[in-house]
Design a protein around this nucleic acid. Structure first.
Length: 299
DNA sequence: CAAGAATCCTGCCAGC
DNA sequence: TGCTGGCAGGATTCTT
């Protein structure tokens, strides 16, 4: 369940271990892993072989590696990666036994460690995108993430005000703000003392500002923890980085005392998943039309 | 056109 | 013991 901090840890690992190297061979053992590539796995491999990895980029939860084709000077195409729920990019020695869910294997002309894409649930995948060196076209609808220096807080607030939806839905909408998943959404809302069901159309600029600060705090904290573990050949996603190493205040803490006020944390079903919140700190919104009657305590 | 629901997938765990 | 059903969740696709 990698969110922005986990993906950033992977990006740094790729920057350290893969950038500058030239791809020698590509092995696709699970076609679903390249299902976003319309021309199929053969063309996928053909494009990659001989290309040199120019950089390791990220927007939200997406990664891409701009590629310099043989004989070219500047990158033109890019290798895209999304980890989905359970995807891992691993830098492994060639003799390391195949992982059970190894789907794609890239070897390099220097004969050194190879790059493996391993994914249990195949929600993630790789793709080659033509002309994707700067920003892959398929990523155009993904908003900047809150750690991007060019993320515009005031513009985000205006977009929230225009939307007729709930604040947690908005946090999970990658076209509004990217990089946030279910876990960090709950954590940021808890820190902001905002209920996830609050209507975005009524948020004040102060509330949006507080929410963004909370999002950044949660992610920065996770990054600080996750960033300490990538100093190895193993570019991990699930095992050692981010929220798996830090203490969570809301997510997964049903019936446990709130770390602020000791009220039992509640869990409600929401969008085919769970939302965790403190019913005391995070007061549910009121129905505007119903003369001050409190809204039901659903999500 | 936009909001929300359904869908994909496998490992794990509770319950019988 | 071994089965079954529920749950986990990001992004795309479908429906309303």
């Amino acid at each position: 369940m990698p969110e922005l901090p986990e993906v950033e840890v992977v990006r740094r690992g790729l920057e350290t271990w893969v950038v500058g190297r030239t791809i020698a061979h590509v092995e696709v053992t699970h076609e679903r892993a390249v299902r976003r590539h319309l021309a199929g796995p053969l063309d996928f491999a053909d494009t990659l072989v001989g290309s040199r990895v120019h950089a390791a980029m990220r927007r939200g939860k997406y990664l891409w590696l701009p590629l310099v084709a043989p004989g070219a000077e500047e990158p033109e195409d890019a290798l895209l990666a999304h980890l989905g729920m359970s995807g891992q990019l691993l830098v492994e020695q060639p003799e390391t036994p195949r992982q059970k869910h190894l789907h794609v294997r890239l070897t390099f002309t220097d004969g050194g460690n190879e790059l493996r894409f391993v994914d249990q649930r195949t929600f993630g995948g790789l793709a080659v995108e033509r002309g994707g060196a700067t920003l892959p076209p398929s990523m155009a609808h993904i908003a900047r993430d809150p750690l991007d220096p060019l993320f515009d807080d005031v513009l985000f607030h205006a977009a929230l005000r225009r939307r007729n939806t709930e604040v947690k839905r908005a946090l999970l909408d990658q076209s509004l703000i990217s990089g946030i998943g279910n876990i960090y959404a709950d954590e940021a809302l808890w820190r902001s003392k905002l209920h996830g069901a609050r209507p975005t159309g009524k948020l004040t600029l102060a509330q949006t500002t507080l929410l963004l600060a909370s999002v950044r705090d949660v992610m920065t904290d996770a990054l600080a923890v996750g960033g300490t573990s990538f100093d190895s050949l193993y570019v991990n996603v699930n095992g050692e980085s981010g929220y798996f190493s830090r203490d969570l205040d809301a997510y997964g803490r049903e019936d446990q005392p709130c770390n602020r006020c000791a009220t039992a944390i509640r869990r409600v079903s929401f969008m085919n998943r769970s939302s965790y919140f403190c019913p005391a700190c995070q007061r549910p919104p009121r129905l505007s039309a119903a003369a001050g009657r409190p809204a039901p305590q659903q999500h």
